[in-house]
């Protein structure tokens, strides 16, 4: 399945691994922060609603 990368296998594989790693890292961080902030906002909104009543 693996294509023959010749002499440059190490370079090509590092380039792919690092880039995909960075992209996935960015995606995970964005999603995690999105979840966290959404949850916090929901909590603050709930608190505000209680305070208003």
């Amino acid at each position: 399945m693996m294509p023959d990368l010749g002499n440059y296998a190490a370079e090509v594989l590092t380039a792919y691994a690092l880039s995909v790693g960075l992209l996935v890292g960015l995606l995970v961080l964005s999603l995690r922060r999105s979840r966290k902030v959404s949850a916090q906002l929901a909590e603050v909104e709930a608190r505000k609603d209680r305070a208003d009543v």
Binding site: L26, L27, S30, L31, R33, S34, V37, S38, Q40, L41, V44, E45, R47, K48, A51
Partner: peptide
């Protein structure tokens, strides 16, 4: 897609800050 997700996060974070300041 990332910009959309992160912008939503920033909007929510901002609203939270404003609500907390008001309370």
């Amino acid at each position: 897609g990332l910009v959309l997700i992160r912008t939503q996060t920033e909007i929510r974070a901002r609203r939270m800050k404003a609500l907390e300041a008001r309370m």
